[in-house]
């Protein structure tokens, strides 16, 4: 954890507390604020787009449906974003496009940069004061892929700062530690199962000792389970998001998803074991620790049970107190970013 002196008291002129958090994920972008009425407000935007030709008819149609769109640089295309993008993709039987891929800015999409910038700014809203702290989630270096996250982190930082905030990165699994492991004194293992990556953080009293990521997650499950039964990836995503129980599959779609889910969890656990064996300064935990699972991919029924079965198969340098799902699986990262940002300011 960064050791900084809390800032001077600054009475916010607006209706929310100073400090904002944003979770920029492969599938969703979530921003979190706390208003003066003691409410946490989270804005969720699906991180997907679909392009159609920029014609008057198309613009009017989108306006009448209340759909959000962004015009391409040359003005020839309209990028429909969010849920409407998925609807269009289903109508045209095509896949939606993603500005992020495997947890970082996509290199397949030339428009990704400006797309993310627009979405991030729109989800964040206006700053309360100059250089208001905005904590944004970033992945850790992957252990199983040959790419790094420096570029991704710096691009996001520059976009957030262009909106007038002071952008500070925070590992997304560490953000879960802040939002979910307070009862345990911020000690334990937190895992964020996103769409593109899994991020892991082993922390002791808020101090992170091991942080790493794995470059496969929900998208990998969707793609491979779809390939196995000759189905479209989007269809498998829809089946998954509708809700499945990994231990009680109802049809061949769910069976395929269940098989790849278990394979994926075993892969994550094995990589964790390998990483721990290569890390010299793993802390010695005096007590058994809790493991918290968050992220959209962890929403599948019995996910925690399958994870527990797999992690009990490996040797760990600590004892496990419990394996539990985060109280708020979808927003645990955004909330952790928010709590960390607000804690930089003194109480009003």
């Amino acid at each position: 954890m960064e050791m900084k002196e809390p800032k001077k008291v600054v009475k916010s002129k607006n209706n929310r507390k100073l400090g904002i958090g944003i979770d920029i994920g492969t599938s969703f972008i979530n921003s979190a604020i706390m208003d003066i009425n003691d409410e946490v407000k989270i804005r969720t935007q699906r991180d997907a787009f679909f392009d159609i030709e920029n014609e008057k008819f198309a613009r009017n149609m989108l306006k009448s449906q209340g759909a959000n769109y962004i015009e391409s640089e040359d003005g020839k295309l309209l990028y429909v974003i969010g849920q409407e993008a998925l609807n269009f993709a289903n109508v045209f039987k095509k896949e939606v496009r993603r500005p992020l891929q495997r947890g970082v800015i996509s290199t397949r999409e030339p428009e990704a940069l400006l797309m993310i910038k627009t979405i991030v700014k729109s989800v964040l809203g206006k700053k309360q004061e100059s250089n208001e702290i905005c904590k944004f989630s970033v992945p850790a270096e992957p252990v199983d892929a040959d790419y790094n996250v420096i570029y991704h982190e710096n691009v996001l930082k520059s976009f957030i700062e262009s909106a007038g905030f002071k952008a500070e990165p925070i590992n997304e699994a560490r953000a879960i530690c802040y939002s979910e492991l307070d009862e345990e004194g911020f000690t334990g293992l937190s895992l964020s199962f996103g769409a593109g990556m899994v991020n892991t953080c082993l922390s002791y009293m808020g101090q992170s000792s091991v942080e790493f990521s794995i470059s496969r997650s929900g998208d990998w499950i969707d793609e491979n389970s779809a390939m196995a039964i000759g189905e479209r990836t989007a269809k498998m995503t829809a089946v998954k998001e509708k809700g499945i129980d990994l231990l009680k599959p109802k049809d061949r779609h769910e069976e395929s998803l269940g098989i790849f889910y278990r394979n994926f969890i075993a892969y994550v656990v094995k990589n964790f074991e390998k990483k721990l064996s290569q890390t010299a300064d793993v802390p010695e935990f005096p007590q058994p620790i809790s493991i918290v699972l968050a992220g959209g991919t962890s929403l599948a029924g019995s996910f925690d049970k399958v994870f527990k079965e797999e992690i009990e198969k490996i040797k760990l340098p600590f004892q496990i107190k419990e394996v539990r799902l985060a109280e708020d699986q979808m927003f645990a990262v955004a909330k952790g970013c928010l709590y960390s940002a607000i804690s930089e300011y003194e109480d009003e």
């Binding site: 804005r43 959000n68 769109y69 962004i70 015009e71 400006l114 797309m115 989800v123 809203g125």
Partner: peptide, 10 residues
């Protein structure tokens, strides 16, 4: 980029 999105309302 030009857009019909309003800041903070997406």
């Amino acid at each position: 980029l030009k857009t019909n999105i309003k800041d903070g309302e997406l």
